[in-house]
C-alpha cells in the first residue's frame, strides 16, 4: 500500500533523507525507529505529500504522491508531530471541519464524527474548546481527525510522545485494534513500543535506512535480548558488548 523508492531530501547542505526504499502492505504496522533528527518525520512528510522529495518517489495505493497529491492525501490519515490543532475550535466542530476538508458527504461526516469520538474516547470533551484540552486529549483529537474518513493508510508521527504510561497503553491498544485492514506507519524513539505494537521495524539514522526486519529478529541480535543495545550498535556504528549484527 505504501511504496517508497530511493527517496531523498536535501535541505541546503544537509541530507535529511538519503536514498531510502521500503514498502509496507495491508495489515502491517511499520515502526520507524531512529535517534532524534534521523529523518523519520521528513520521510513521513514526503509520503503525506507535505514536502516534496529532492529525489526518488513515494507511492500510496499504487498512485504517485508527486503526480496526484490530492488523491494520495485523500487515502492517508495523518497525525503529525506534536498534534497541531486549531485551538479556537470546539472538538466536534473541528472533527466536522476535518471531514469537510476530506470532502466527505454530509451524512458520512456525522457518522464519522460519532465513530471517531467513540473510538478515541472523546465523549467527555466533545463540546469543549480545543485550547482547554490536556495533552492526552489533544493527541486523541489529532488521532480522531486522522481516522474520520476511515483511511486505508495511517501515518502517525510519534503518536505516544509526551503521554503518561496509561495513555500510552491506550494509544497502543487503539493502534493494534485499527490494524487489520489498514497499513499503519508510526515513528517513535521508544523501543518497547516497537516490540509491543509493530509487526516490522525500520531503523533510520542520519537519513539512511540501516535495518528492515521484524522486532523479534532485531532483539535476537543481542545476547541479553536488549533492544537498547542493538539500537545503539546499529545507529552509532560502534561495537556494543553482547550484540552481534
Amino acid at each position: 500500500m505504501i511504496e517508497v523508492n530511493h527517496l531523498s531530501k536535501r535541505f541546503e547542505s544537509i541530507m535529511a533523507v538519503d536514498d531510502i526504499s521500503f514498502a509496507a502492505g495491508k495489515g502491517e504496522i511499520l515502526g520507524f525507529l531512529g535517534p532524534n533528527g534521523a529523518g523519520k518525520s521528513t520521510t513521513m512528510k514526503m509520503i503525506t505529500g507535505f514536502i516534496l522529495p529532492s529525489d526518488g518517489e513515494a507511492l500510496v495505493c499504487g498512485k504517485k504522491v508527486q503526480e496526484v497529491p490530492t488523491v494520495t492525501k485523500g487515502l492517508i490519515g495523518y497525525m503529525s508531530e506534536n498534534a497541531p490543532l486549531y485551538d479556537d475550535m470546539y472538538v466536534e466542530d473541528f472533527l466536522r471541519y476535518a471531514g469537510e476538508l476530506r470532502q466527505m458527504a454530509a451524512d458520512k461526516i456525522e457518522a464519522g464524527v460519532n465513530r471517531v469520538i467513540d473510538l478515541c474516547a472523546l465523549t467527555s470533551v466533545r463540546y469543549q474548546k480545543i485550547e482547554t484540552l490536556s495533552k492526552g486529549f489533544r493527541r486523541r483529537v489529532s488521532m480522531a481527525q486522522a481516522l474520520i474518513h476511515d483511511p486505508e493508510v495511517l501515518i502517525l508521527d510519534e503518536p505516544t510522545d509526551g503521554l503518561d504510561p496509561n495513555q500510552k497503553h491506550e494509544v497502543r491498544t487503539l493502534i493494534r485494534q485499527l490494524s487489520g485492514n489498514k497499513c499503519i506507519v508510526l515513528s517513535t524513539h521508544i523501543l518497547e513500543e516497537v516490540e509491543e505494537v509493530c509487526t516490522r521495524a525500520i531503523i533510520i539514522a542520519k537519513g539512511k535506512l540501516l535495518y528492515d526486519g521484524t522486532p523479534a529478529d532485531l532483539k535476537s541480535k543481542s545476547k541479553q535480548h536488549k533492544l537498547d543495545d542493538v539500537f545503539r550498535a546499529i545507529t552509532t556504528g560502534e561495537s556494543v558488548q553482547g550484540v552481534n549484527l
Binding site: 512528510k45 503525506t48 505529500g49 507535505f50 490530492t70 488523491v71 492525501k73 485523500g74 492517508i76 495523518y78 503529525s80 508531530e81 506534536n82 497541531p84 490543532l85 486549531y86 485551538d87 476535518a98 476538508l101 476530506r102 470532502q103 481527525q145
Partner: peptide
C-alpha cells in the same frame, strides 16, 4: 507558527 499548516495541507486540498 502553530504547525496547523501541516494538518491543513496534508488534507486533500490544494
Amino acid at each position: 507558527k502553530s504547525g496547523t499548516i501541516e494538518l491543513l495541507l496534508t488534507m486533500p486540498v490544494t
